[in-house]
Amino acid sequence: MIESAVAAIHQTDVVVIGTGPVGLFSIFECGMLRLKCHAFDSLDQVGGQCAALYPEKPIYDIPAHPTILGAHLAANLELQAAPFDPIYHLKEQVHTVEALDDHGKSWRLTGTQGTVVEAKAIIIAAGVGAFGPNRPPLKNLEEFEKTSIHYFVRMRETYRHKHIVIAGGGDSAVDWALSLSDVAARVSVVHRRDKFRAAPETERQLKQLAADGKIDLVIPYQLAGLTGVDGQLTAVEVESLDGHNKQLRADYLLPFFGLSMNLGPIAEWGLGLTHNHITIDPTTAATNRPGVYAIGDIATYPNKLKLILTGFAEAAQAAHAIRHFLYPDEVVHFEYSTTQGVPKA
C-alpha cells in the first residue's frame, strides 16, 4: 500500500528506510515474525537501483534464478512482502529520527514531506544513500544530457541499430557492452587501460567479442569532446595518453564512472560510521544505537561481501534480532517457511 503524507502520526513495529531488494526482503522477514512495517524511500517506486536505474540489467547471483532482470527481482520481492500490508512512503526521505525512550524501543521518524511515524525499531536499508552519476568533465556535456547521454540503461530497445559509445572500465561498462552488442549497430568501449575492473569472466567475454570484431575496444583512450546538433550526438572525441585524438561515430554516449554517494541525514543520527558505511554486529545487524539496525550495502563489518544475497541474510538476522529485542521474554520457536506458511497480516 502506498500512502501519501498526512498530519496523523502513524504507529508501527518497524520502520524500514530504503525499499531496494534488501529493504523489501526485510519487510517480508519482519512479517513472518508478525512485525508490521512502514517503509520510506526517496524514489517514486520501490525496488531501489534495480528498478530505477537497472530495470533491464540481468542479475546472475540470485539463488534459484540463473538470470533475472533487476525490475523482475524488485517486482517479485514487492509481491512477496505484499501479504503483510506494508505502508510505503515514497518520494520522501527520513529527515529526523528522535528517540522517545532510553531503551531504544520507541522512535519518532519525520519525513521530508511531513510524514510522522512512531516505531519500536528501525532498519536502515538505504544502499549507498542518495546517489547520482559521476559525470565526465566535458565542457558541453549538459547540451546532450537530456537526449543522447545516458548514465543508466532503462530500455535496451532504445539502442537498437544505434552507434553506442560506452566509457568506463567497471562492471556496469562491461556488462552493458556485452548486453547491447546484441541490439546496437556498433558498440565502442573507451577505457584508459587494457585491464578492466570487472568480473574476470565478463572481461574475458568482452575481449572475445572484440577479437571476433563484434565490438570495438578503444584503449588506451579517454573522453575528450562531444560533437552534435540540437542536443543529438553525432560523434564522441577521444584522446590517447600520448595526445592522439580521433572521432567515434555515436548516437548515444553511456558514461559509466560509478555513482556519487551521499548518506544525507543518516550521517547525523549518531551511528557508528566507517567510510560512510554503518558499522554493525554481523550476528544481529545491530548498530551502536539500541533498536537501530542496518543491512545491505550501507552496512559494514569485517569481510563483508557486498552482494544482494548477503543483504537478504542480514535482513533475516535483523528481523529475528528485533523480535527478541522487543519481546525478550517471549519464546519464539524457529520454524521454516515450509512448515509455518505465511502468517496472515
Results as ranks from 00 to 15, higher is better:
residue 120 K to V: 00
residue 119 A to N: 06
residue 128 V to G: 11
residue 97 V to A: 09
residue 102 D to Q: 15
residue 117 V to E: 14
residue 94 V to G: 01
residue 95 H to E: 15
residue 96 T to K: 14
residue 131 F to M: 12
residue 97 V to N: 02
residue 111 G to E: 10
residue 107 W to P: 08
residue 115 T to D: 14
residue 130 A to K: 11
residue 118 E to F: 04
residue 114 G to C: 02
residue 117 V to R: 09
residue 113 Q to A: 15
residue 127 G to F: 07
residue 117 V to N: 07
residue 107 W to R: 13
residue 116 V to G: 01
residue 126 A to P: 02
residue 129 G to W: 05
residue 124 I to G: 08
residue 105 K to Q: 13
residue 132 G to Y: 04
residue 124 I to E: 00
residue 111 G to D: 12
residue 116 V to M: 15
residue 128 V to S: 14
residue 123 I to T: 10
residue 98 E to G: 00
residue 117 V to L: 06
residue 108 R to Y: 05
residue 129 G to Q: 02
residue 114 G to T: 05
residue 132 G to V: 03
residue 125 A to L: 02
residue 109 L to P: 15
residue 131 F to W: 03
residue 93 Q to E: 13
residue 120 K to W: 05
residue 121 A to Y: 06
residue 122 I to N: 05
residue 122 I to G: 04
residue 104 G to L: 07
residue 115 T to R: 11
residue 133 P to H: 00
residue 107 W to L: 11
residue 101 D to H: 04
residue 115 T to Q: 12
residue 97 V to P: 01
residue 132 G to M: 03
residue 113 Q to R: 13
residue 93 Q to Y: 13
residue 94 V to F: 09
residue 108 R to E: 08
residue 93 Q to L: 08
residue 106 S to L: 15
residue 131 F to Y: 03
residue 101 D to I: 03
residue 102 D to C: 11
residue 130 A to F: 06
residue 130 A to Q: 12
residue 91 K to V: 15
residue 120 K to P: 00
residue 129 G to N: 11
residue 119 A to G: 04
residue 107 W to C: 14
residue 122 I to F: 03
residue 104 G to F: 06
residue 120 K to C: 09
residue 115 T to W: 07
residue 118 E to C: 09
residue 100 L to P: 06
residue 125 A to Q: 10
residue 100 L to I: 00
residue 114 G to W: 04
residue 116 V to D: 12
residue 119 A to Q: 13
residue 123 I to W: 02
residue 102 D to G: 15
residue 116 V to K: 10
